[in-house]
Design a protein around this nucleic acid. Structure first.
Length: 293
DNA sequence: ACGAGCACCTGACTGC
DNA sequence: TGCAGTCAGGTGCTCG
């Protein structure tokens, strides 16, 4: 469930299940899913069993659960295909389950949390919390990640100025998690469509007003997707109860190559971009003058 | 500074 | 039916 709205759906769903819960057991079924933990499966289990969890937090696509009475957190990244599922203990198995956590929740009683991941680009780790910008505690592996556009402390005018110092194309800049976090290939294409910008437009060509408008479009598309439960093309992208979101039906750009632009009717084009692909309207989002693609 | 390429993986789908 | 190739919503590294 990669991008910000999908991760936030998971965080919100996880909150009532894990907050105040005691970890009763941990089972690592595939050690590749704890590759970013500093230690083996036994060490990962020992770092969790007997501990009490706090309320889950998120920055961009990184999600973590603070461990109470300590300076560590259980960090999760979903990669391309990770899921966090909240189940009754002993519930029917979920495909690609890599890690199971057995919790005792004061209100709900026993709960099983499953980390499932087809491609294993994501994973769990217990990591130390460090001070990041704003003095907030974040896991060390997420310390380089900037604030995301729906964070209360996000300062669009500062980010717009940083964006405008970049020679690189705006899409690459939006995907740079150290500039602004939470955006992936879907929402980058959606925000660029809303802002009528070509992906290769250099950041330095934007006026402050144009950059601010782009960041507002980013925020709007993320918030709308979140309100609709995220984007689900297939069974990979689901909330903690295994349910799909609805934002797929609101997409204007991503996955719409060959279909008419919802604004002008021109045929949308899908182009290779940075070892992946990018979809845009050739009429609304023209290549900037003097920029080769 | 920045783009390109690659590595890490599985599985669904396409074309022959 | 099988097999090779392609593609997928991410991150992080090296190499120019």
């Amino acid at each position: 469930m990669p991008e910000l709205p999908e991760v936030e759906v998971v965080r919100a769903g996880l909150a009532p299940a894990v907050t105040g819960a005691r970890v009763e057991g941990v089972e690592v079924l595939d050690a590749r899913s704890i590759a970013r933990h500093d230690g083996d499966a036994a060490a990962f289990e020992a770092a969790l069993v007997g501990r009490t969890l706090g309320a889950p937090e998120r920055r961009g696509k990184f999600l973590w659960v603070p461990i109470r009475d300590g300076a560590d957190a259980l960090l999760a990244h979903l990669g391309m295909s990770g899921q966090v599922l909240v189940r009754e203990p002993g519930a029917a198995p979920d495909r690609h389950t890599r890690i199971r956590l057995l919790l005792d929740q004061p209100v709900h009683g026993p709960i099983e949390i499953r980390f499932a991941d087809q491609r294993i680009f994501g994973g769990l780790a217990v990591r130390p919390l460090v001070a990041a910008d704003g003095g907030r505690a974040v896991p060390d592996q997420a310390a380089h990640i900037s604030l995301d556009p729906i964070d209360a402390d996000f300062d669009a005018s500062v980010v717009a100025r940083r964006l405008r110092r970049r020679r690189q194309g705006v899409k690459a800049a939006l995907l740079d998690q150290t500039l602004v976090s939470g955006i992936g290939n879907i929402y980058a294409d959606e925000a660029l469509w809303r802002s009528r910008l070509h992906y290769a437009t250099p950041g330095e060509r934007l006026t402050q007003a144009r950059a601010l408008a782009l960041l507002a479009d980013v925020r709007d598309v993320l918030e709308q997707a979140l309100a609709e439960g995220g984007t689900s093309f297939d069974a990979q992208y689901v909330n903690v109860n295994g349910q799909a979101g609805y934002f797929e039906h609101s997409l204007h750009a991503y996955g719409r190559g060959g279909q008419p632009c919802h604004r002008c009717g021109a045929t949308m084009v899908r182009e290779p971009w940075a070892n992946r692909s990018s979809t845009r309207c050739p009429r609304c989002q023209r290549r900037p003058r003097g920029i080769a693609v």
